[in-house]
């Protein structure tokens, strides 16, 4: 199980890439993170995998984690078979060439991976991640796969018994999956306020407010676009301070 507790991420003093995300992923209920470009999906996955340290919040994760990056690099000189054997050794498990075969790998396993097609490289990268035993963190796992391999991947993920966290742009169906949208919904406006205090309940009750949550000393309010001006005016009238407005 992986637990992300109110995590946020920013680089230096830059803008927040992720803010106040709470998420629990347990075995048997895959979580699909959705959202437009730049909403922080990959960043969330890198934090869950233990690559990136959140700037705020806490993460608890199991020991054995498998990570599939969004784009596995193309110029790798190691052959596929050596790569999988050595990385399985790093994890302390046996190499699983059967996973590669199940995904329908075509190519020379003893030639440099740079000579493989994108789809076949993706299959090697997936087989590497699927040898983990506790948590799978897969960033766009269907990218580059043909339909048959995509279906096999769904079965392999379900059979792994791991907690599963994936991103997906194309609406692939993982049985029993929970979808978690990141960022504002389509067309929504996110307003961050300071000095909210008692006014939070009144702001939450305004027309068009989708979500209003206390964050630190302030609040994060998501509102329908047509109601954002009225919300800002009301927030200022109530004595709140506007920290940011994003759409």
């Amino acid at each position: 199980m992986v637990r992300l507790d109110r995590i946020g991420k920013r680089y230096g003093r830059g803008p927040w890439v992720l803010r106040d995300v709470t998420l629990v992923v347990e075995p048997g209920e895959p979580v699909v993170v959705t959202g437009g470009n730049g909403t922080g999906k990959s960043t969330l996955l890198r934090i869950a995998a233990g690559l990136s340290r959140p700037s705020a919040g806490r993460v608890t994760r199991p020991r054995s984690v498998g990570y599939l990056p969004e784009r596995f690099p193309t110029g790798v000189k190691l052959p596929a078979r050596d790569y999988l054997r050595l990385l399985a050794g790093v994890r302390g498990v046996a190499a699983r060439w059967d996973l590669v075969e199940a995904l329908g790998f075509v190519g020379d396993p003893d030639a440099p991976m740079a000579t493989l097609s994108k789809g076949n490289t993706q299959k090697i990268a997936l087989a590497q991640a699927l040898t983990a035993t506790d948590l799978l963190v897969l960033d766009e796992p269907w990218s580059g796969l043909d339909a048959a391999a995509g279906a096999v991947l769904v079965d392999l993920v379900a059979a792994s018994g791991c907690a599963v966290l994936v991103t997906d742009h194309h609406g692939h169906d993982l049985p029993g999956a929970r979808r978690v949208p990141l960022g504002a919904g389509p067309g929504g406006v996110v307003v961050e306020l300071d000095r909210v205090g008692e006014a939070l309940a009144r702001i939450a009750a305004l027309d068009g407010v989708r979500d209003a949550r206390a964050v630190g000393g302030g609040a994060r309010v998501e509102v329908e676009p047509g109601h954002s001006d009225r919300l800002l005016a009301e927030a200022l009238r109530l004595g709140c301070s506007v920290r940011s407005v994003r759409s």
């Binding site: 995998a49 233990g50 020991r63 984690v65 498998g66 990056p69 690099p73 790093v90």
Partner: peptide, 16 residues
């Protein structure tokens, strides 16, 4: 290793 493959290795190794 390039940074992306390094990321895969770091996760497989169990941390930085």
């Amino acid at each position: 290793e390039d940074p992306v493959r390094r990321a895969v290795t770091v996760v497989a190794a169990g941390g930085w």
